[in-house]
């Protein structure tokens, strides 16, 4: 299958500090790729480079067919992004949020409305479209934020700890949405601290001190390290970390 993200020897240096240290990996189209690592391991820096927010010190790579060194603006048009910290503007309604994000990605009003109706109807949320986000429960907001990030049909969607502070039932529903998006051909690049979620990814990479120490399917990693869960795999690797933030 075609690689949608391809990175070779990527390094990001801040003065004497090497936040990302010579990492290389590929992510295929329609894949759910778990990008794991303890705090301070360099995940956020790597994601910022992939999203076109920051430039790598050295290395090469492409995201959605665009060069990460020279075509950061083209990358931005082809990706979706969602983080735990911020989901949607609370003082706008669900539909206003969708109109804003759709508009940012150059969608026309009619197109936005049609997609919003289809996506919200699937979530059984269409009748709440005029509710202010403020009045919607946190779990629902995360699901809506994912819908909004997916509105412009990006080739890759980056999820930075998308399920932080969400109840287990909503997390399961959220992963159902991720699977459906991947099945439809969208690549999902997700970071998480929940190892049960890591087990749901097609492949995972584990970063320690700026380097990728392991990269394979969850099953293969579990058998390689001769443990029973992804949690144990993660702890085996992260134990040796020098950096701690």
């Amino acid at each position: 299958m075609e690689n949608i993200i391809s990175v070779r020897n990527l390094t990001k240096q801040f003065g004497a500090f090497r936040a990302v240290d010579n990492i290389s990996f590929d992510v295929a189209q329609g894949e759910i790729f778990g990008f794991l690592g303890a705090n301070g391991a360099g995940k956020t820096t790597a994601i910022r480079i992939l999203c076109g927010l920051s430039r790598a010190t050295s290395g090469t790579g492409s995201v959605a067919g665009c060069d990460i060194m020279t075509q950061s603006e083209d990358i931005k048009r082809n990706i979706g992004y969602m983080c735990q910290k911020f989901s949607l503007y609370e003082d706008l309604t669900v539909l206003e949020n969708m109109e804003l994000y759709g508009g940012i990605y150059g969608m026309h009003r009619k197109e936005i409305l049609a997609k919003a109706e289809a996506m919200l109807t699937e979530l059984e949320f269409w009748h709440h479209r005029h509710d202010l986000v403020r009045s919607i429960p946190a779990g629902w907001r995360q699901k809506l934020a994912f819908t909004v990030a997916n509105l412009h049909a990006p080739k890759v969607i980056f999820l930075d700890e998308p399920t932080g502070g969400v109840d287990p039932l909503t997390r399961r529903q959220f992963w159902g949405m991720i699977r459906r998006a991947a099945a439809a051909g969208t690549t999902v690049f997700v970071t998480t601290h929940y190892m049960d979620e890591a087990a749901l990814c097609d492949r995972v990479s584990i970063m320690v001190d700026g380097r990728i120490m392991a990269l394979d399917t969850p099953e293969a990693l579990i058998s390689k390290y001769q443990v029973r869960t992804m949690d144990e795999v993660f702890r085996t690797l992260a134990r040796n970390a020098v950096r701690n933030e």
Binding site: L53, Y101, I104, Y105, G106, F158
Partner: peptide
């Protein structure tokens, strides 16, 4: 503070 700036900066705006 909200973190929305990050989301906006990732967009093509």
């Amino acid at each position: 503070e909200l973190g929305s700036m990050e989301v906006l900066l990732v967009s093509p705006v």
